[in-house]
Nucleic acid binder design. Structure first.
Lengths: 233, 233
DNA sequence: GACACAAAAAGTCAGACTTATTTATGCCAG
DNA sequence: CTGGCATAAATAAGTCTGACTTTTTGTGTC
């Protein structure tokens, strides 16, 4: 996955992208194309292509006579899937995971409400399949199988909302869920209450009950927030 | 604004980007770098940089021996500000505006709730200033002045939430509000009820009342949805 | 049907040249 | 001597060209 070896400029990005997003170069740092080309042992043309990509992500700004300057974090295109992956792979992974989980808590309930209104018969069936798959793997250390169905479930909800902006957050949710299972807090088996909620959401969507689907999904996301101790009582 | 004349490759993107996002090239269409370079009268190096940028936006995919193929809309990085601008400038502007408004309706209430908890004294003051500016320009055909304060208001809310993902949606909200004033439905003067709601949100945030700030903001975004006839009663 | 060959297009590189921008210089006036 | 302004130099990105490499696909032959 990720940029992969898609050409030499991809290799350069694989090390330069994570370095910048990790904050190794403070905002305002100046890099020179020629120097970078030497450092990575590539031609200037290749390095220029890499810089152009970083520039399109608003990670850097290239100006004549001054060089390639690193932009402050506040200007980065933090919704770029590549940037998200780089940051999740880096040191501030926990902070990133929190931001994304909060975003989920805002978006998914609304998406579920829309899905209840717009989901096709196929999508309803798929949703039920996913929920059943979660139930089937909710006990007995089958975390990987559970994760697959969990990710699929949320992807279907977001896609069924009919809103393309929501649909494109499927990858983000997948990263968050995957991260929770693989790196962060994840108990032996998933919370049975959460599993039940997913089943109920599938039912609500099939029944076309937008309010109920939204409320149930909100409970799911609240649970995700609590797992990360995001809560001000 | 936008990519501007930032080099020759920027010029190329200014016409190629809008063309692709407008759907002029159906998904799967094949472009050849050399041909494009000739068409735009630039060198292959410049053309390659432009293609790299389009590739990083997931608008196209470059493969050896086959060429530069246009990706299906579902794979585009629709959160890229540049892509958003291109699409807003094109034919499916109405659809795009609807998608973004729905996104707003999901995000802004949650952001307001967080802002009530996290906003600094300066941000509270700024928020009140914006609300007052909206009131002052709510009557007498001062739409431009009103817009400025409206945009600033929502930017402060999103920034004060303390969540970077929310904060980066400031530009998106600005585009939506600006679009509403300049191109789409906008009555002689803003809805007085909406103006009042903004003032009340500012008060709620200052008072630290998260629930009230969230509910009031939800009313604002519901109004925005109604303006675009997004409602299934 | 398997394998080898040929064509096509992107990918890479090296070097020369252009252009914009910043900084330093130097001149004249106050 | 100092301040400001025009001019010149230095610098790094930007651009172009042409030759070469590599990968992938399609084709044709055995």
């Amino acid at each position: 996955m990720s940029t992969a070896g898609r050409g030499l400029h991809g290799r350069v990005l694989d090390t330069l992208g994570p370095a910048i997003t990790a904050g190794e170069y403070p905002p305002g740092s100046v890099l020179r194309t020629d120097e970078l080309a030497q450092r990575f042992d590539v031609s200037r043309s290749v390095m220029r292509e890499a810089v152009r990509v970083l520039e399109s992500m608003h990670l850097v700004e290239s100006r004549r006579r001054v060089g390639v300057t690193v932009r402050p974090k506040a200007e980065w295109n933090v919704y770029d899937p590549q940037v998200i992956r780089w940051r999740l792979a880096g040191a501030d992974r926990p902070r990133q995971l929190r931001s994304l989980t909060v975003l989920r808590s805002a978006v998914e309930p609304v998406a579920a409400a829309l899905a209840a209104k717009n989901a096709s018969a196929e999508q309803c069936a798929e949703l039920t399949q996913c929920a059943l798959g979660m139930v089937a793997n909710s006990r007995g250390h089958k975390l990987e199988e559970y994760l697959v169905h969990d990710v699929a479930f949320h992807r279907v909800i977001l896609a069924a909302s009919g809103n393309e902006m929501f649909a494109r957050l499927g990858d983000v949710v997948a990263e968050v869920l995957s991260g929770r299972t693989h790196h962060d807090v994840m108990f032996e088996d998933p919370d049975p209450a959460a599993v039940t909620l997913h089943v109920q959401v599938a039912e609500a969507v099939r029944a076309g009950d937008a309010t109920r689907a939204e409320e149930l999904t909100r409970e799911i996301t609240v649970g995700a927030l609590q797992e990360l101790d995001i809560l001000a009582p």
